[in-house]
Design a protein around this nucleic acid. Structure first.
Lengths: 340, 340
DNA sequence: GGTCATAGGTCGTTGGAAAAT
DNA sequence: TATTTTCCAACGACCTATGAC
């Protein structure tokens, strides 16, 4: 008895399909007598509305897609959690996909035969797709970008203030008396500009403190993964004059860097202080625990979802630039015994 | 020009809807002349098939749902990644939801007004829902369970051999000469039985080694989170005779336990060796890196997805019990300088 | 008798407008 | 006239049956 339809229920209750629909939806009043009769038939047949049919009729699927580079990167997993939660408060569910930072996959996702038409909108955390490419491909599907900017003004966009975040992290290190501060994670040739913005913030902090930037202390990494942080740290340790602090562009890089430091017997924070960005849970229980600039992920998710739903229902057509708050969480990787 | 349909294209090309459909799907041969003409119209109007309509007609959505307790728990994030990848090889996309281990939310998910009918099937990693409740609610929606067993034989199920995994972890510690081995993570009163199976494996290993189990070394935790592992470790350290090794039921508990050990100045592995379960990436870069029993998540995902698709297309009606492989990854938390 | 194209019905739901009470 | 209920036409793609060449 797989799947009874409105027609089945109507036949059993001896009423029209429309009446059953009215009982199910409650939009149009139905007399008590019929309501009871229909409800009984509904229960007996264990009727469940076919949501695909409903969506077709309504022109809405009630689903949005969230596309991130890698779901097993803690920041994205934690962000996804918040997005799912935020979407639910609006009655939406979330389809999740990952691109592995592969531009081809990002393109595919927006291509003609993609599943994109199944969703009312798309939250995209892009890595390598370019602005005009994205513009060309997103006709019709409402899109809100997360994190990466991709050219100003063309798309709705939610992120933290990356320059300020990087500056805050670097100034924290400066405030501890560190003067030879390295940076791990620059991506001067990336299409995305997150890394570049963080480099800007880092430079600003140093310059405001009257320090000159030592370019060999800026170690680029192609991605933000633990092992790349570990490798970058090795290079820094091999310098004739190693740093006394490191600003890592995300927490995974920082954790990789601390891994290298632990192996090398370098004390954190005594010899080298480490700070990251992302505020992932992993950093609370690492040894030492990790000082980090934590974006308000719940705020990002809420803003992104409500912006997207605004675009979907047509109430927010003009691209918006939303900045979510961030804050510095001071832990053992910079201060041996944090106040908190 | 939002959304042209087959009709629009047909009108523009001066052919019937069916012919356009044939060009789009390629199922029925179309003469070259018409094909070119139709293709031109397709391109001009930037036609994209409405997948909701297609799904309604085909009776398939091409989507499965993956429901996990918490997406920000690394094991589930990493598993989700593999599930998405596995689903894609079959042309399926994945809707993700999380229950927060809340039984109410698990029930809701299967209830009458749920979105479940939008999906061809459901991969569920249950926490607190019971067997008959699940049975009662899953009429019609094909389900495959991940991890938790929930009564034998009623559902398709994919997991590692939890007893063997726990035994392997414990025997590894025994093989290192440890004799006072604690266990963190038992859940004697849980509806799920994963924790209980791991306790069984732990006991088996000790008994086979001719040791008696010291019940005060088995510390239960309501969930598998870092802070609970940290608390459990504090209790163990407070014992008159603390353990010389700890088997944690998952990696997060182990990481929490190591956090406590680091604070207390206890050396790992010298004073206390630590082993976890899950093989999450976090453990590769923790200090010290974490020895763990790693389930083959890709295998779990592949098996689960293909089993589910089998149920969907009717080729695998009888509940199957699949066991995925696991292996011990030896790292610094048990052996100061691992071979690898 | 193939090949190729068309008309028309179907999937299950919803909404407008008419018809019953 | 007001309230219920019914009929019928969508939503957009797919497919069976039918016929033209």
């Amino acid at each position: 008895m797989a799947g009874s339809t409105l027609r089945d229920v109507a036949r059993r209750a001896g009423v029209s399909i429309r009446t059953v629909s009215n009982v199910v939806n409650g939009s149009v009043p139905v007399s008590d007598e019929l309501r009871v009769r229909v409800q009984a038939a509904l229960d007996e047949l264990d009727y469940r509305p076919n949501l695909v049919a409903r969506n077709l009729r309504r022109g809405r699927s009630g689903m949005i897609a969230l596309v991130v580079p890698e779901l097993d990167v803690p920041y994205f997993a934690e962000l996804a959690r918040e997005v799912i939660t935020a979407a639910r408060t609006h009655g939406y569910v979330v389809m999740l996909d990952q691109t592995d930072g592969d531009g081809e996959r990002e393109r595919e996702l927006l291509g003609r035969e993609s599943r994109a038409t199944m969703f009312d909108g798309l939250l995209l955390s892009p890595l390598s797709i370019s602005a005009d490419e994205l513009r060309r491909r997103t006709n019709r599907v409402p899109v809100v970008l997360l994190g990466e900017h991709i050219f100003n003004g063309s798309f709705h966009h939610v992120a933290i203030d990356n320059v300020a975040a990087a500056r805050d992290a670097t100034e924290h290190l400066l405030g501890l008396g560190r003067r030879r501060i390295a940076a791990i994670g620059d991506q001067p040739y990336s299409t995305g500009e997150t890394a570049q913005l963080r480099t800007t913030g880092y430079r600003q902090a140093l310059e405001r403190a009257g320090l000159t930037v030592d370019e060999e202390l800026i170690v680029p990494t192609p991605r933000f993964h633990r092992h790349l942080g570990a490798e970058a740290m090795e290079r820094l340790l091999a310098l004739p004059e190693p740093p006394d602090a490191v600003f890592c562009y995300n927490d995974l890089l920082a954790i990789g860097a601390m891994h290298t430091l632990a192996r090398a017997g370098v004390r954190v924070p005594d010899d080298i202080a480490v700070v990251g960005v992302d505020g992932i849970q992993e950093g609370r229980y690492s040894s030492p625990s990790l000082t980090t600039v934590a974006p308000d992920k719940a705020a990002i998710a809420r803003t992104a979802v409500s912006t997207l739903l605004g675009v979907i229902d047509g109430s927010a057509p003009a691209p918006t630039e939303a900045k979510a708050p961030h804050r510095l969480l001071v832990r053992q990787s910079t201060v041996a015994t944090p106040a908190d």
